[in-house]
């Protein structure tokens, strides 16, 4: 089984709101003192792939990213977590290409890698959160896509897998033929592992392929043919919280119960 895991480098989503600024003219977030990190759902995807390889005792994991040269960091981390291969498609020209451009680029890279059975992507990214890469990638590759997956196991017949995925109401188990795309969501079993120090050191000696857009025949000038950011701003939201006061905890709870009771009765 060959699994390609797509990883996106993003601005650390844990940056508190008070430190978060946008460059309205460039229509992107200012990095400031914040780190760039691997998108959490992409980490969940890699963790899921690692667990599947561990359980099967065989298999190959290719970590793949599209981004600026600095996105090498997310792939080094994937190698430290023992991905077998890493490929970076370098796109320095545009820091925020549209979802279709990313999908076309990933599709071209996956074809060039060859022999991929399952493509995993995070369900969405913590920066722009478009949530479209998986679906568009599936269409570019003309294969099925199952979203919000937790993981999979071999199916009843060869060439199929059984995917467990979350829905609004609970979950579904879906049988699907490979190759296919899965978008991975977080759950209690795919919390990313921490790489061993020794593996981190060794990751820098492992090979890491770098391809350009032109290596893949992707036209860089089409990176906003699908959609573009017309405006970006920080919304002004002024909610003044009324803090419940009282001399004792009991008095505060009385006041709180009254406020809540009033709302419930008014409904």
């Amino acid at each position: 089984m060959k699994i390609a895991v797509c990883l996106k480098q993003i601005l650390d989503p844990e940056v508190p709101a008070r430190d978060f600024k946008v460059d309205a003219a460039k229509r992107e977030a200012e990095q400031g003192g914040a780190n760039l990190v691997t998108n959490i759902f992409c980490e969940n995807a890699l963790e899921t792939a690692l667990q599947i390889r561990d359980a099967a005792g065989s298999g190959e994991i290719v970590a793949l990213s599209v981004g600026p040269a600095g996105a090498e960091d997310v792939l080094r981390k994937a190698l430290a977590l023992r991905a077998d291969q890493a490929v970076l498609v370098v796109n320095d020209a545009d820091t925020n290409p549209d979802p279709l451009f990313v999908a076309k680029t990933l599709a071209a890279a996956i074809k060039k890698i060859g022999g991929v059975d399952v493509v995993m992507v995070g369900r969405e990214a913590g920066d722009w959160g478009a949530g479209q890469t998986g679906g568009l990638l599936a269409e570019e590759l003309a294969i099925p896509c199952i979203s919000f997956a937790e993981g999979f196991e071999p199916g009843a017949t060869p060439g199929t897998i059984k995917v467990k995925r979350q829905t609004d109401a609970g979950f579904e188990v879906i049988e699907a033929p490979t190759p296919l795309v899965l978008t991975i969501t977080n759950h209690d079993k795919n919390v990313p592992r921490i790489p061993k120090t020794r593996d981190v050191m060794q990751s820098y000696r492992k090979p890491l392929e770098k391809w350009t857009l032109s290596d893949l025949g992707v036209d860089g000038s089409t990176s906003h043919a699908y959609s573009q950011v017309a405006e970006l701003f920080i919304p002004k939201k002024e909610t003044k919280c009324e803090f419940i006061e009282g001399d004792t905890v009991e008095a505060k709870i009385d006041a709180l119960a009254k406020r809540i009771g009033d709302i419930l009765r008014a409904m």
Binding site: V15, A17, V22, H224, Y226, Q228, V229, A230, I234, P235
Partner: peptide
């Protein structure tokens, strides 16, 4: 943390 207006091409 931010709001965007996305234009669909």
């Amino acid at each position: 943390k931010a709001t965007a207006v996305i234009e669909l091409e």
